[in-house]
Nucleic acid binder design. Structure first.
Lengths: 250, 250
DNA sequence: CGAAACGTTGACTTGTTTCAATAACTGTGG
DNA sequence: CCACAGTTATTGAAACAAGTCAACGTTTCG
């Protein structure tokens, strides 16, 4: 494969497309990326990809499957901070700060490209433009975490659920999975509970409520928006924080 | 003032010290910073520094006073996402994404250096190393937002309060305000309520509880840690996410 | 086929909110 | 310097959302 072909291949990956939305990537940026993009690893459900408190952890670019990042509290309860879907970068902070402050675990079998601490710091030193793009993308992820924080702080259980389902739907559509009517969702009610700060029992009740009022159905691994507009209304969902137009830095 | 003196002056600012913790700043990085650091603006309580939904907003480096960033929900309730104290950078996302996805409002009278959209993008294009440092620092702020999210999702009202007070104490000590015994805190119980996802009435009750059990006293604008160790125990507070050692990128 | 994980539902308990009323501050103008 | 208005703090009683416990049904997978 010629240098040119490699560049073209990497340019079409969901990850490169995401970064290109922030910064125009040079030929050398792309070749650094394609180098990293080679190494693929597989992870099974239940095997931590990143482990809280450990240092020397790698970051990953998710190629297929779902993962979640979470924290465990002293009491043993956990809070899921975010879910990662194909194209997402994960574990950035665990590399930038040498020690992981959270766990990341696959929810389904996962394929991911490993980005070692050395890869990443090296890329930052040699192609600061690329570094800027990565951190810029991370900043968009932060907007999602903030929205999640608002969920937990000021939305009722039903509003949270609606907001969460809409957000995942919008994110999945951005990477070409799922459509306006719904999407395949591998999450258990326990995972939803840990993400939304609810008990699993209450998640079940809220889902029934939403189903019976004709807003949303989540059964057998599939989310169906029965009344998309009413859901948006209920959740106060404004997808502005997920979008932005064109590269900002030329 | 000579070029050299300017560099020395800016090097001593809390903001430069913060960035230098991540990346070794070059002479030209410092002069870009000192240029930006000149323009000081004052804001009174109640005057938005950044307004949700508006574009063309500036970012700021807080020189003195406290501010808070928050979101307003359709129902009129609000969720405070974070408080900013001297040395903090605020409004980064509102510049990176052209449109602000949150509000920022002073809690006390504030002095801040304005960083216009143009300044920032220009600095990013010309000194990508500086950009990396800024975004890296932003990544540490994200760790705080994540910890706050865990507060709201999985900690009881008393644990939240304890965790919040300890975190603010640690942050303030990092910039030389307050000590191990406590700190001056200009927050009202309403502000605490909007940050912790509680009602103001319940904030009052929780504060009483903590006071009566000899853990923490918050009265007349002063937080006193009556039993620091017990508080850390109650909150499950681990300040690791606030610290890190030495510049990671040389 | 059996075991384990996941989903569902009811009855009861708890933490937190809401409403309402009153008290203590803070700052401003007369 | 006091009076007054507005904001902030405090407390009680009642209402409510969500959690816990417990039992049972259903799916998934080795």
């Amino acid at each position: 494969m010629t240098q040119r072909n490699v560049a073209i291949a990497i340019q079409d990956s969901p990850f490169a497309r995401k970064l290109a939305a922030f910064v125009r990537l040079s030929q050398s940026d792309l070749s650094v990326m394609s180098e990293i993009y080679q190494r693929r690893r597989r992870f099974s459900v239940g095997v931590d990809m990143i482990h809280q408190g450990q240092s020397g952890q790698s970051a990953f670019v998710l190629a297929s499957g779902w993962a979640c990042s979470y924290k465990i509290l002293p009491g043993g309860t956990r809070q899921i901070v975010d879910f990662q879907i194909p194209g997402d970068f994960l574990g950035l902070r665990s590399v930038l700060f040498r020690t992981a402050d959270h766990n990341v675990e696959p929810i389904t079998p996962v394929q991911a490209s490993e980005v070692t601490q050395h890869d990443l710091l090296d890329a930052f030193a040699r192609t600061p433009r690329l570094a800027t793009a990565v951190l810029w993308a991370a900043s968009r992820d932060e907007a999602m975490v903030v929205e999640h924080l608002v969920d937990l702080g000021r939305r009722s259980a039903a509003e949270r659920m609606a907001h969460f389902m809409l957000e995942m739907g919008a994110r999945l559509r951005l990477v070409g999975i799922g459509d306006r009517t719904g999407y395949a969702c591998p999450l258990s009610q326990y995972l939803l509970a840990d993400a939304l700060g609810l008990s699993a029992v209450h998640v079940n009740r809220v889902l029934r409520e939403l189903r019976e009022s004709g807003l949303l159905t989540f059964q057998k691994g599939r989310v169906v928006f029965d009344d998309h507009d009413a859901l948006v209304e209920l959740a106060g969902f404004d997808r502005a924080y997920l979008d932005h137009d064109g590269p900002l830095l030329i």
